[in-house]
Amino acid sequence: MDSLVVLVLCLSCLLLLSLWRQSSGRGKLPPGPTPLPVIGNILQIGIKDISKSLTNLSKVYGPVFTLYFGLKPIVVLHGYEAVKEALIDLGEEFSGRGIFPLAERANRGFGIVFSNGKKWKEIRRFSLMTLRNFGMGKRSIEDRVQEEARCLVEELRKTKASPCDPTFILGCAPCNVICSIIFHKRFDYKDQQFLNLMEKLNENIKILSSPWIQICNNFSPIIDYFPGTHNKLLKNVAFMKSYILEKVKEHQESMDMNNPQDFIDCFLMKMEKEKHNQPSEFTIESLENTAVDLFGAGTETTSTTLRYALLLLLKHPEVTAKVQEEIERVIGRNRSPCMQDRSHMPYTDAVVHEVQRYIDLLPTSLPHAVTCDIKFRNYLIPKGTTILISLTSVLHDNKEFPNPEMFDPHHFLDEGGNFKKSKYFMPFSAGKRICVGEALAGMELFLFLTSILQNFNLKSLVDPKNLDTTPVVNGFASVPPFYQLCFIPV
């Protein structure tokens, strides 16, 4: 009986604490739906499609509103004006990374994606500088992407125009580009180590996009005490870190300090320079996690976009025909596509942009946080508050993009057929937390897609009208449904 009384008292205290925290903070924060004790607004949000729920709530509470995930307040920004004001106009104040408990377990605050403060700034600055020195957006990395595009075309030829699921092959190409940047090595598509790495990356994007992960991140005790797919994700990350550590040891034994070959060499050189400046942010643990982040951000996002792009091109054969006509006119058949071609191919450029806009790969991006107490639109948001960005509300804005739910390359073309930029184009987020590999991803999408369409016609196994382009999961990332196609050599 005594234990029951204690339990009831504990629960009562928890409920009172929950109510007090919510009521004391709500006077400062933007308005929002009334949260339930302990669980907050979790029942009012469709976990399978958070973005749709945010759109519905914005119609009631406006472009800036507050939700509670458990006891934790989260300020939501919906629509271009609110997102721009926060991420661009007040970029420094909104540059923090929001709480992501599962990532905390995986990387302990290291790396480039989930770190904060001085650690994040130094690692991000170093990573950007190193990638630029190796030619991100310049010639040397373009050579690597072109080489991988040629290998991709050869792998597709091996399908002999038979029906195939493109998931694996389209994942190999961007993964190999990242391998060449980090390890100075590309792998054969049949290499077992490479296959294991690909498998872990593919599993992780599916797990991260599941409703279960949303629950884990908002009720963090689940991570330590409950079984579930989150444990598989943590094991996959541990596998990748151990693999990278092996490569780091190989580099330490063979590195030429006067001739760095890749990202690992550059990081080890930085560690050597910083060894007298303790404590340094440049450690082996930081290198492991930064490399894992580059793999995660640079492989599955690009391969998922490529997979979605081919599905949309199957669905819209008239678009595919126009792209192939432009390829034939500008590039021809006797040389590989290059980035200089893009400025002469406005329709193809528009298609690449429209694919990214339409699929809305990361509907709410990753959570941000404010780095200080900030007054925002007459609300006071306390330091450390998590900020949720609705990228969907920007990419699918119906004023900027008429009929935003329709796939239409003319969203990025003017009346004369010239490519038209849009400030609403934010597939990689915006501001200080914009994806480090934005330029690389854009290069890969253009070169891989043009190389495929230069060499193959795409054949659907069903009537294009019957192809479903609805994402199968739409949590962290929008993942396309399973499909097969035939690559018919031109």
Rank of each mutant, 00 (worst) to 15 (best):
N133I: 07
N236H: 02
M129R: 13
L128R: 12
R150G: 09
E288M: 13
G79Y: 02
P402Y: 07
S429R: 01
S254P: 04
F134V: 15
L87P: 03
I207G: 06
T34E: 07
F100H: 15
G137Q: 09
G135P: 10
M271K: 07
P464F: 05
E438T: 13
D397H: 09
M240H: 02
F428C: 04
S58R: 10
S429N: 06
L11Y: 13
M136V: 12
N133Y: 07
E199N: 13
F263K: 01
G111C: 03
F412R: 00
E92L: 08
P363W: 00
L36A: 09
A86G: 12
F407E: 00
N56S: 13
F456L: 01
N474M: 10
G91I: 03
F69M: 12
V330R: 11
P363V: 02
P404G: 14
V177K: 00
F183H: 03
F425D: 09
Y483T: 01
G171Y: 06
Y225S: 08
Y243V: 15
L461F: 07
G384C: 03
E326I: 01
L458S: 00
H78C: 15
T364Y: 15
N398P: 15
D408F: 02
V472N: 09
K423R: 14
E300G: 07
M129T: 13
F425I: 06
I389L: 14
L43F: 14
P221S: 12
T364S: 11
N258G: 11
P260Y: 05
E438C: 00
P489R: 02
A309T: 08
L391R: 06
V370H: 00
I39Q: 03
A350D: 02
L43S: 08
I215Y: 12
S18K: 08
T386C: 08
I42C: 12
N176S: 02
F376L: 13
E142L: 02
V323I: 14
S451T: 11
E400C: 09
E104S: 12
P382R: 08
T385G: 03
R124F: 03
A149S: 06
K158L: 08
D188P: 06
N466L: 15
K241P: 01
I50R: 11
T470R: 13
M339G: 05
G46S: 13
P409G: 01
E325V: 10
R132D: 00
K190V: 05
Q278I: 10
D341L: 05
N196T: 15
R307E: 02
Q356A: 09
V323Q: 01
E288A: 15
N289Y: 13
L77I: 14
L306A: 00
F401T: 04
S127W: 07
F69E: 04
N41M: 04
L77A: 04
E122F: 04
N218T: 15
I39M: 10
A369T: 15
V75Y: 02
E104R: 10
K247G: 04
I244C: 05
L67Y: 06
V330D: 03
C372Q: 15
S343W: 10
Q22D: 10
M271F: 06
N236A: 03
F65T: 03
L314V: 09
S280H: 12
L306G: 01
P404I: 03
V6M: 15
G384L: 02
G96A: 12
V330M: 10
V370T: 14
I215E: 04
L54S: 05
L313I: 02
I39E: 03
K72S: 08
I215H: 07
P260G: 08
K232N: 06
D256G: 08
S303P: 02
V145G: 00
K465W: 06
M406Y: 10
V237D: 09
F401N: 03
V355L: 06
T320F: 02
E328K: 15
I178V: 09
G32H: 02
S127L: 09
N378D: 14
H230K: 14
V6N: 13
L391E: 07
E203I: 03
K52A: 11
K432V: 06
D191F: 00
R329H: 13
Q192P: 15
S127I: 08
S51P: 13
F482H: 15
A439M: 13
D262E: 03
S23R: 14
V60L: 12
F407N: 00
K206P: 01
E326M: 01
K247A: 10
P163L: 05
T470H: 09
K399A: 12
I182N: 00
N398T: 13
A430Q: 11
H276Y: 12
Q454R: 04
I222F: 14
R105G: 07
D293N: 10
K459M: 09
L131A: 07
N258M: 09
S365Q: 06
T299Y: 09
